[in-house]
């Protein structure tokens, strides 16, 4: 047996990896990182929207007086500010998602890859159509 060959042995504990500690505030160092975290934070406002919707359904089920109180509560400046922030974040999430769709899904038609701008355009068109239909349903009274 050669002297240069080392014997294989197992250690009981794995040696510690060398990993530099990443700051908790790493996402503040560069704009793309901050944008990523802001986009992720938008999920909190989606949960807030569900709370708002459930409060509306509860008020509707309790009668006209409860619903009038709910509508009055919606006019509170703090709630309006919260809803304005929520709308900003939810729209930011929607726009960044639609712009990302060509990377998330590759669509082929008759053997050729569909252009990115067509996929993005279709998503925006669907967004506009769905928004118009929902607004029409709510406003046709």
């Amino acid at each position: 047996m050669s002297d240069t060959k080392q014997a294989v042995s197992y250690t009981e504990y794995h040696p510690r990896w060398y990993r530099t500690r990443v700051s908790t505030w790493w996402w503040l160092s560069r704009w793309p990182y901050l944008k990523f975290i802001l986009r992720e934070i938008s999920s909190v406002f989606i949960a807030w929207f569900v709370v708002l919707l459930l409060l509306q359904i509860r008020a509707l089920s309790r009668g006209p007086l409860a619903y009038a109180a709910f509508e009055h509560w919606l006019q509170n400046p703090l709630i309006l500010l919260l809803n304005l922030s929520a709308l900003f974040f939810v729209t930011f999430h929607a726009v960044t998602w639609f712009n990302l769709t060509p990377r998330a899904m590759v669509v082929r038609f008759r053997g050729k890859r569909v252009a990115d701008r067509v996929i993005v355009g279709t998503n925006y068109a669907a967004w506009a159509a769905v928004s118009l239909v929902l607004a029409w349903v709510l406003l046709r009274s």
Binding site: F49, L52, P64, L74, N83, L84, A94, F98, W127, L134
Partner: peptide, 29 residues
């Protein structure tokens, strides 16, 4: 979420309370 929430939030959270668009009545909703 991206498709339907913005329009819901715009109408319920801003346009109706501020009065930009007339809110639907209780009976209809």
């Amino acid at each position: 979420a991206a498709l339907v929430i913005p329009v819901h939030l715009f109408l319920l959270g801003l346009a109706f309370p501020v009065g930009w668009i007339a809110a639907p009545g209780y009976e209809y909703l």
